Amino acid sequence: MDDNMTMRLEIARRIYDLDAEVYRVLGSSLGRVFNSDRDMTVRRLANLMGDFTQGHYLRSELALISNMARTIPVKADRSRLMTEYNEILHALDKLPTNFNSLDILDPKMAHLNSLRLNRRFDQGNHLVVCIGRTYGSAGTDIGFALADALKINYYDSEIFTEVLERMEADPKSVQDRVSFAHKQNLNQSLGMDKNRGLKERLREFNRYHGLPTEDALFFNQSGLLCDMAKREDFIIMGRCADAILSNNGIPHISLFINAPFNLRVRRVMDTDGLDKKGAVKLLHQLDRRHRHYYEFYTGRRWGDPANYDLCLNSASYGIDGSVALVRQLIEKSRESAKD
């Protein structure tokens, strides 16, 4: 076994044990993130660390653990477990093939940028940051790193699905509002799944009180998102969150992260193991899909600067620089709220 794999296995064990300890201390009725055999789970986590194409799964699982850990009421326990979480992130960063290392920085542009900030939200509201992004712009990496830097919860589509499913399983939850089909993919959300039979479509029709499945899912997640914004600080990736919160009068900061197409192509070639032709095709498909979903449910133009507080070219700053930039925006907003 090479040294890199040994390091990954050790970190994987720490992740598994952290999840177990968070569950033990919290005694959560929502359950653990990892329920499988320890050795099997550790091996899977170690493999994820070495695969750029699957790194988002590891990121989501880590975020679920940290989100739960931040709810621990005893300060000493919460501090101890969050310290271990942060040390695990630092260990991941040191891996030769860490899952979050490919940057999008364009050094020629980075030195040209400056920032002018205005007041963004009023004092007393929860900090909610909505991030839209194009695939290959490192937007998800930036969102995850920003949540860690701000010490707030992080939700992407996979975590949001998991939260909805867990709430549905919780007898204390409102069943109708959070009904959710687990692992519903984006094609189904856009109504592109042509293979569902008549019986399945009728069953979904009855389940959602006559609404099309994709519409019911959107309304359910919208209601949950608004409830969350009244209870906690968090970062939410996509989900039309900026438009949903705006329509409900809930303060938030909205960002859109993009990068030059050629740099996105290069990054996707590295992260997804595609040749240039395949990367270009994938980006065009995903851009069309994301644009259709966003514009269908919001009536807004996806990526239009008029719809966001800040549109960020991640190639101008890279991942770390983008995180620092947004933190500066938030800190300035908080200072303005005190005036």
Rank of each mutant, 00 (worst) to 15 (best):
Y208K: 04
Y208N: 02
L211T: 04
P212W: 09
T213I: 13
T213R: 15
E214S: 15
A216Y: 01
L217W: 05
L217D: 00
N220H: 10
Q221S: 13
Q221V: 09
S222C: 12
L224R: 12
L225A: 00
L225E: 01
L225M: 02
L225H: 08
C226I: 13
D227S: 15
D227F: 08
M228N: 07
M228H: 05
M228R: 12
A229R: 08
A229M: 06
K230Q: 03
K230L: 14
R231M: 05
R231Y: 03
R231P: 07
D233Q: 09
F234G: 00
I236Q: 01
M237Y: 13
G238C: 04
G238L: 09
R239H: 08
R239S: 01
C240A: 01
C240K: 09
A241D: 01
A241Q: 11
D242P: 14
D242K: 13
A243N: 09
A243Q: 11
I244N: 07
S246T: 15
S246F: 12
S246M: 12
S246I: 11
N247W: 10
N248C: 06
N248S: 12
N248L: 11
G249V: 14
I250E: 00
H252N: 08
I253A: 03
I253W: 02
S254A: 05
S254P: 15
S254M: 03
F256W: 05
F256I: 04
I257Y: 02
N258Y: 15
N258D: 07
N258K: 14
A259V: 05
A259Q: 03
P260R: 06
P260D: 00
F261Q: 04
F261Y: 06
N262H: 12
L263N: 02
L263F: 11
V265H: 07
V265W: 03
V265M: 01
R266C: 09
R266V: 13
R266Y: 11
R266P: 08
R267Q: 01
V268W: 07
M269R: 12
D270I: 15
D270H: 13
D270V: 15
D270R: 15
T271W: 02
T271F: 02
G273S: 03
G273R: 13
K277F: 06
K277E: 02
G278P: 11
G278D: 04
A279G: 10
A279V: 14
V280N: 05
K281T: 08
K281A: 01
L282Y: 10
L283N: 04
L283I: 09
Q285D: 13
Q285G: 12
L286R: 14
L286M: 13
D287Y: 06
